[in-house]
């Protein structure tokens, strides 16, 4: 239906204070893929997500989402592009002055098209999706536990029904039961809506349960990208180290 890939990075390079984080990095994610992004600490995984979101301008190379260049000068096109993606930040990044309900309702209200009843139903639906009670809507972000913050943040990321979902450490800080629920939730959403998901994760269970593809970030670029079982056999110190003994279990 959509011929251009959802994410297309070409020769992206970025450096902080003379230290290269990415060098000639290329990645191509097609519609419907769930990509697990792996890499050691400080290998620039979050930086890569920020580049995809357009929060960080790379020094060189091009980034295209849904075939649209992130540097496109057309403001309307840019805004519509942003509405097609949802991001779950590592620390949740909830608006601390707004209640849980208002946090999730915020992007919906910004559309200025939906009526109050519709928004209320949608917010409660998202809350139910991530396993929260309607009464939790009244709480302020400061009153939430770490896991709840994450779930509210996911609900907010899902509020606009994004086509591309970026997740930064989605299951870190969740108990195993919750993280299993999370995996099932994202999996079913993906089937229903044909979502494309890019997630940074260190949790092998999340990776095994959810990802269809794996991208490995090391040496400032993507050293391997492909279906999960193919990548696991790549001979690179990071890959062998990461999967290590668990490799057999996952296969």
């Amino acid at each position: 239906m959509n011929p251009s890939p959802v994410i297309e990075l070409n020769g992206v390079g970025v450096s902080f204070g003379g230290k290269a984080v990415h060098r000639d990095l290329s990645l191509r994610v097609e519609e419907g893929q769930i990509v697990g992004l792996l890499g050691g600490s400080g290998s620039g995984k979050t930086t890569l997500l920020r580049e995809i979101l357009g929060l960080l301008q790379p020094d060189s190379g091009t980034i295209r989402l849904f075939g649209i260049d992130l540097n496109d000068p057309d403001v309307d096109r840019q805004r519509n592009l942003r509405r097609r993606l949802g991001m779950l930040f590592q620390q949740g990044a909830l608006f601390s002055a707004l209640s849980v309900f208002d946090n999730i309702a915020f992007p919906l209200r910004e559309l200025r098209c939906l009526d109050a009843d519709w928004i209320r139903r949608l917010v409660h639906l998202k809350l139910a999706m991530v396993g929260l009670e309607p009464t939790h809507g009244k709480l302020m972000p400061a009153e939430l536990s770490g896991g709840m913050v994450k779930r509210v943040a996911l609900a907010r990321a899902l509020a606009l029904e994004p086509e591309l979902l970026l997740l930064d450490e989605p299951t870190a800080g969740l108990d195993p039961d919750r993280s299993q629920n999370f995996v099932e939730l994202v999996g079913s959403l993906q089937r229903e809506l044909g979502l494309t998901v890019v997630m940074v994760t260190h949790d092998l269970n999340t990776l095994a349960g959810l990802a269809t593809h794996v991208a490995v970030l090391a040496d400032q670029r993507i050293i391997a990208f492909g279906p999960k079982d193919e990548v696991m056999t790549v001979d690179h110190p990071f890959v062998t180290g990461f999967f290590g003994a668990d490799r057999r279990k996952l296969l």
Partner: peptide, 10 residues
């Protein structure tokens, strides 16, 4: 082809 929850609520 696609039905999301906003449309479902509608």
């Amino acid at each position: 082809t696609r039905l999301d929850s906003a449309a479902a609520v509608l």
